[in-house]
């Protein structure tokens, strides 16, 4: 009996999760996001055609065996463009979240820890930024810079940090009176060390879970801004632009707009599930 048990343990290492150990949305989310990530990385190998090469002999063809998602008005393969688009949109989601996360977490942590005037000023700035509709302020910033992906990231960082600042500040205000913080201060550790080595690691969980669901909003925003013509520029394959380009052909070629939209929905669903599963696992309630 013990022998059988031993061999089972040997076949299944302890670090390998068994089914049901983690929340189901987590598996699904990791599966979807992982698949998109692999598609993006291996796009040159997976995509059957060049995403921007025009082939006017096969323009506006419906879904077929050769072109599963059909072709657009330049004869470009929609499937290949959707696969290559994963590269751009995944990048939008990740970079568009990383900078607001870092900036917001730093400002919020320092404001909450320092308190007083620093906190008051930071929070008034947060109030003002929040008074603007998110997309409107982003568009206004992009108007000043110039349309493009770089401007999108800058605008995203300038507008998106406020949610992270609020989240982390609230956590820091709770943890600041914890015994271990007092202990660390009594040991003579500097404020910086206490804040970034002791408080922040305990305060950050909620922000990490939020950042996963924030990816959904960032991707939708990025695609919307590209759709408006103010983000990623043609002929790059990006889902938002593809939808905009297909809008002229809705009466004859629905597939040009339909498939990139489905891709956005799948990616959004993946990150939503990931956020839900992660939140459940870490015991974070939104």
């Amino acid at each position: 009996m013990s022998l059988v048990r031993g061999s089972a343990a040997a076949a299944r290492p302890a670090w390998l999760p068994h089914f049901g150990q983690y929340p189901a949305p987590l598996y699904l989310g990791i599966g979807i996001v992982g698949a998109i990530f692999l598609l993006a990385v291996f796009a040159p190998l997976v995509a059957p055609f060049d995403p921007i090469a025009q082939n006017l002999d096969v323009k506006l063809q419906g879904p077929s065996f050769a072109y599963p998602f059909g072709t657009d008005n330049f004869g470009r393969d929609i499937l290949s463009r959707v696969i290559w688009g994963a590269r751009v949109d995944l990048q939008i989601g990740l970079i568009g979240v990383v900078f607001p996360f870092l900036i917001g977490t730093s400002i919020g942590a320092v404001a909450g820890y320092a308190g007083g005037v620093v906190d008051a000023i930071a929070m008034r700035v947060v109030d003002v930024v929040l008074a603007f509709p998110f997309l409107v302020l982003m568009l206004a910033i992009i108007a000043i810079l110039q349309p493009g992906l770089g401007s999108f990231y800058i605008a995203m960082a300038l507008v998106g940090w406020v949610s992270y600042a609020r989240l982390i500040r609230a956590q820091v205000l709770v943890l600041i009176s914890a015994d271990y913080v007092l202990a660390a201060r009594s040991l003579g550790y500097s404020h910086g060390r206490v804040l970034f080595r002791h408080i922040l690691p305990n305060a950050i969980t909620g922000s990490i879970v939020f950042s996963m669901s924030d990816v959904v909003l960032v991707v939708l925003n990025g695609a919307a801004i590209s759709y408006l013509g103010l983000g990623v520029q043609p002929p790059t394959a990006e889902w938002g632009i593809m939808i905009a380009e297909g809008q002229n052909f809705i009466t004859t070629a629905w597939w040009i707009t339909a498939f990139p939209g489905f891709a956005i929905v799948v990616m959004a669903l993946g990150f939503s599930l990931l956020a839900d599963g992660l939140g459940e696992l870490l015991g974070v309630r939104e």
Binding site: V216, T257, V265, A268, S272
Partner: peptide, 18 residues
């Protein structure tokens, strides 16, 4: 209510137009 959040409104609009 979970999936609805992930639908890009501009795309949904075009699908509804079609």
């Amino acid at each position: 209510s979970t999936a609805g959040l992930g639908f890009p409104p501009f795309w949904l609009a075009i699908m509804l137009i079609i």
